[in-house]
Simulated scan of single mutants.
Amino acid sequence: FGADAGAGEIIILHPRNGLIRHQDTLVIPLLVPDAPIVAWWPTNPPANPAKDLLGAMARSRITDAANSDNPEATMERLRRNLCAEDVDLSWTRLTVWRAMLASMLDQPPYLPILKAKVSGPKNFLSLDLLRAWLRLRLDVPVELEIVEDAVAITGVYLTREDGVVSLERPAEDQTVVRQPNQAPQPISMPIRTDEDCLSEELRRLEPDEVYTEVISSGWDLMYS
């Protein structure tokens, strides 16, 4: 195929019987020498991607626990078997949120955050990862507010001595930055697609140290 997709090839394999146990030997002859290998599981990943026949060959392993049959159980298995080369798209969907929040806190008056709150849908992995990141980075309690019928994160609220700094999403394609004594600032921020997230991970292909730290340390801090 070519055109807008770029020059390349798609090969679809349907291994049967004993070949299911030798997927690596089926794929190796099809690979371009010295090209980086990325393994992506769009739905249910193996419990330990690094030990998977295809995952063991990959320089980067991308999962999407949110699209698995049981997102919470899947994420727990991925946490137990985490390797530096692993990343989940539930985390990649937070890139713009994390960048915006960091930018907001990088402005005066540089007051300490006393507490935080996040809001969004129930059982939403990206929301849990955002809570874990904030808990780890700010070292303050992070409250969770469930918003019925929400399809993505709807807001982050950071309380300081001078008031509340917030990043709210009133619509799917827009957020509003609110800071004490300042006019609200609307910003275009559409919900990221899977293509957006995959493109980001394919550009990087390096271990995400922050994700590793959040999953291994920040996640448990949410419940402490």
Rank of each mutant, 00 (worst) to 15 (best):
P108K: 10
A99S: 12
E172T: 15
D64M: 09
V177D: 00
S217V: 12
T154D: 01
S60W: 05
D149E: 15
D208F: 04
T193L: 12
T175K: 01
S60V: 12
T154F: 07
N70G: 01
P207C: 07
I37P: 10
M104Y: 02
L54A: 09
D173S: 14
L101I: 15
E143G: 01
H22S: 13
I12W: 15
H14S: 13
L205D: 04
L31E: 07
V147N: 09
I153P: 01
N17Q: 14
D24H: 11
H22L: 11
I113Y: 03
A73R: 11
S217D: 03
V140H: 08
G120Q: 08
P180A: 06
W41P: 13
Y157F: 15
D196L: 06
L13P: 02
R203Q: 12
P186R: 06
T25C: 10
L78W: 00
L144N: 02
N81V: 08
L26I: 09
P46Y: 06
R135L: 02
A116L: 07
A3W: 09
P184N: 07
S224T: 08
S224E: 10
L125I: 15
G218T: 01
I146E: 09
P49A: 06
N81L: 05
A150I: 05
R203F: 03
N81S: 10
R98S: 03
T95W: 09
V164E: 09
H22Q: 14
P15M: 04
N70W: 07
P109W: 05
K115F: 05
A183N: 07
K117Q: 14
A183H: 00
L105V: 06
D149V: 08
L114S: 08
V156R: 00
A47Y: 11
M189V: 11
W41F: 14
D139M: 05
V177Y: 00
R61G: 06
L114R: 13
W41A: 03
D194Y: 02
E9V: 10
R61W: 05
K115W: 11
